[in-house]
């Protein structure tokens, strides 16, 4: 049995190997602040919506124009954390949306979600995404920030069979394993990030016991 420390190291190494950013924070509150600063540091995002700088067909371009300001979506956050995030966003002039994300399909800047579990040997996050809001937050965001309390970390996917079985037993269920950002190597086998989903994945971890 690997020690907790080894497992955490392995998780970080494997996640970083697929270009995820892994940061240790002291608390969920620090994670919220990190997220807002990350969004703030993102430059003039309207011009940088992934792909909008390129030569597009008129119809694809229409979607680019739908996006008026920096947007964070954080479905599924506990109410107190949601409120705290709202205050931090307001201070930076960022819009924290609580609208259906189907209204934001052009893309949002950051999707902030909790992860249900982490898998060390592949650097994977496990997220019960049965809620469409939560699912879209992890799909249409340019940066996905995932929060992972370390008590939720397991060595391998096999060690999560009981938990996954319980999720699948409560149909309808939509569970995602997420490892790094969206990627493709379909053109000349050259790796490119952010083909359909997030361009970046940030994982914020903390000791919760």
């Amino acid at each position: 049995m690997t020690s907790t420390h080894d497992m955490r190291q392995l998780f970080q190494a494997k996640a970083e190997a697929v270009s995820a950013v892994v940061r240790t924070v002291a608390s969920p509150q620090e994670a919220l602040a990190y997220t807002v600063e990350l969004c703030h540091g993102k430059e003039a995002c309207q011009l940088l919506i992934a792909g909008c700088g390129e030569a597009l067909s008129p119809k694809a371009r229409e979607l680019c124009d739908l996006k008026p300001q920096k947007v964070i979506a954080a479905p599924g956050l506990p109410p107190a954390e949601g409120e705290a995030l709202g205050r931090l966003c307001a201070a930076r002039g960022i819009h924290l949306t609580d609208r259906p994300l189907r209204e934001h399909l052009a893309g949002i800047d950051i999707g902030l979600t909790y992860a249900d579990y982490g898998i060390a040997d592949t650097g994977t996050l496990v997220i019960d995404s049965s809620s469409e809001q939560l699912r879209l937050a992890t799909m249409i965001s340019e940066i996905h920030v995932a929060l992972l309390p370390l008590s939720r970390l397991r060595a391998t996917a096999y060690d999560l069979e009981a938990e996954l079985g319980a999720l699948m037993g409560r149909a309808p269920n939509y569970t995602a394993f997420i490892t790094g950002a969206s990627r493709t190597a379909d053109i000349e086998r050259v790796l490119a990030l952010g083909v359909h989903g997030p361009l970046e994945l940030h994982i914020l971890v903390w000791e919760d016991k």
Binding site: T122, E132, M168, P172, N173, Y174, T175, A176, F177, T179
Partner: peptide, 20 residues
């Protein structure tokens, strides 16, 4: 492809709510 795992593995059990 020499990857430990693909970026996404999706497990779908039944039709989740559609909010369109």
């Amino acid at each position: 492809t020499g990857q430990a795992i693909t970026s996404y593995v999706t497990w779908i059990t039944g039709p989740s709510p559609w909010e369109g």
